[in-house]
């Protein structure tokens, strides 16, 4: 009895696979891959809401890996990196010496003593 159930189960599973192979073309496979990429983006946004930037970056990288043309992924990554760099830039900048304007050919000659 168990053997019959196993064989019937195997036939059913393989039939489902063959049916999918017949009905799902390559374009649909690509679309599904893109959907997975957007699932990662959704998860990244949720991670960001929780304040977990590292996890969000991990999800975004997965999104890019599964669909390299995902513009939203790059934008989100840019936002995260910008927000990180703005935190780092809160240090007061050291005053820099004013730079000399570029010397003309005549001035250069004078400096060289020609």
């Amino acid at each position: 009895m168990g053997r019959v159930i196993s064989i019937v189960g195997l036939i059913l599973i393989i039939s489902a696979g063959v049916l999918a192979a017949v009905s799902v073309d390559y374009e649909t496979q690509l679309k599904k891959q893109q959907e997975i990429s957007f699932k990662y983006i959704k998860n990244a946004k949720e991670a960001l809401e929780k304040g977990d930037k590292q996890q969000a970056i991990k999800f975004i990288k997965m999104a890019i890996k599964s669909y390299p043309d995902n513009k939203e992924a790059y934008k989100l990554l840019e936002q995260i990196y910008k927000s990180e760099s703005s935190v780092k830039e809160t240090k007061p900048l050291q005053p820099t010496k004013p730079q000399k304007p570029a010397a003309t050919e005549e001035e250069e000659e004078e400096e060289l003593g020609c």
Binding site: L10, A16, G17, A20, A21, Q33
Partner: peptide, 21 residues
């Protein structure tokens, strides 16, 4: 092998498995 191949294939085409991973 055939069961695993079928389930992976179905998972990918229905958007539950990331084949790249």
């Amino acid at each position: 092998i055939t069961t695993t191949a079928t389930l992976i294939f179905l998972g990918v085409v229905f958007g539950y498995i990331d084949f790249n991973n």
